[in-house]
Simulated scan of single mutants.
Amino acid sequence: MDSVYYSMCNLFKQLGLPNEPENIDEFISRHRALSDGVRIEQAPFWSDSQAQFLKSAIEEDSEWCEAVDQLDARLRY
């Protein structure tokens, strides 16, 4: 049985980023306004491994997909 909870905090941890709610809010504030034509994994602020993880999560409709979708939405408003 998989015991990982696929939250936004855990997504940031998986990406190797500070994952406290205030860290997440700060990251989103810094990188907000991602253009509509840019896919989340194409954003210039990801490392290659982070971008690949995000791309795989979406393409494979993995357990992380919902958290990635939430992050994508927050980066666009």
Rank of each mutant, 00 (worst) to 15 (best):
A43W: 03
D36S: 12
R39M: 11
W64A: 04
W64N: 05
V68T: 07
L75V: 01
F45M: 06
P44G: 11
P21G: 04
A43Q: 01
L54T: 01
L15S: 09
A67H: 06
L75Y: 01
P44E: 13
A51I: 00
K13E: 14
F53Q: 11
N19R: 01
E26I: 15
D2F: 04
N19P: 00
N10L: 02
Y77F: 09
I58C: 06
I24Y: 07
Y5E: 15
Q50N: 02
E41G: 00
R76Q: 11
E59S: 12
C65I: 02
G16A: 11
S62T: 14
Y5S: 12
I28A: 01
E26M: 15
L17V: 05
D36T: 05
Q52W: 09
R39V: 05
Q14W: 07
F12A: 00
L15Y: 06
C9F: 03
A57P: 05
D69M: 08
E22V: 11
Q50D: 00
E20A: 12
Q50F: 02
Y6D: 00
D69Q: 11
L11P: 11
S35D: 11
F27C: 06
F45H: 05
N10C: 00
S49E: 11
L15N: 09
D69K: 10
E63V: 04
A57G: 06
D36N: 15
L11Y: 14
Q42W: 03
D61V: 07
L54D: 01
N23E: 10
Q42H: 08
K55M: 08
Q50W: 03
S7A: 07
D36Y: 13
Y5P: 04
P18K: 08
L54S: 05
E60Y: 06
Q42M: 08
D48E: 04
F27A: 08
S56I: 12
M1E: 09
S35Y: 07
S47Y: 04
A43H: 02
C9T: 14
A33G: 05
G16Q: 13
R39E: 13
Y77N: 10
G37C: 04
E60L: 11
A67R: 03
Q14R: 15
V68W: 03
R74N: 08
D61R: 15
R30M: 15
E59M: 09
D36C: 07
R39A: 13
A73G: 01
S56C: 10
E66Q: 09
D61N: 14
S62V: 10
R76K: 14
